[in-house]
Amino acid sequence: MNALTRALLIVLAVGLVFGMGVHYESQYDDRWPYPDSDSIATEYESHVGEQVFLFGTVQSVDRDSATAQLEIAHTTGTFEMTAQRFDADVREGGVVQVLGTLEPNHVVVTQAVAVVNPAGSSKLYKHGVSLVGALLVTVLVFKHWRIDRETLAFEARYDG
């Protein structure tokens, strides 16, 4: 298989991944069992009383009243929600999953909450560790494989 054929097939594969991205997003709302954040942002009142699953960034937590202010992201921006009966141990900037019932005035009554990032610094930790992983795998690949300039393909550096 020559370089041109391989390049065309790679472009085809990239196109297939893009196609999956379009198909996935167009079907997602029908498959996801809860109203998505875009729908909550634009048609809030129509979802009042429904069970929702929210991914939110914690703006503040009031432990005395067991409430938290959450920022919910959607495709074109963010909106704020107040989570009641909120008992998670999380700091400002942390990320939580909230399962609850949507009430009027941007309130969600929490049934269950899971802490994804306990603080804003957790994201930095994950990105830092992932960067180490990316560097490790890159170094190892080029330790055992090289790019052949004639064939423009990866070749093993040695037999084995």
Binding site: A13, V14, G21, Y24, E25, Y28
Partner: peptide, 25 residues
Amino acid sequence: PFSYDPISTLGGVLVIAGAIALCFG
């Protein structure tokens, strides 16, 4: 409509692995 999420699915792995394998001689 578009989402990157399929990259992190079985279909995404099968297709992207194919594209990477084509980079090998």
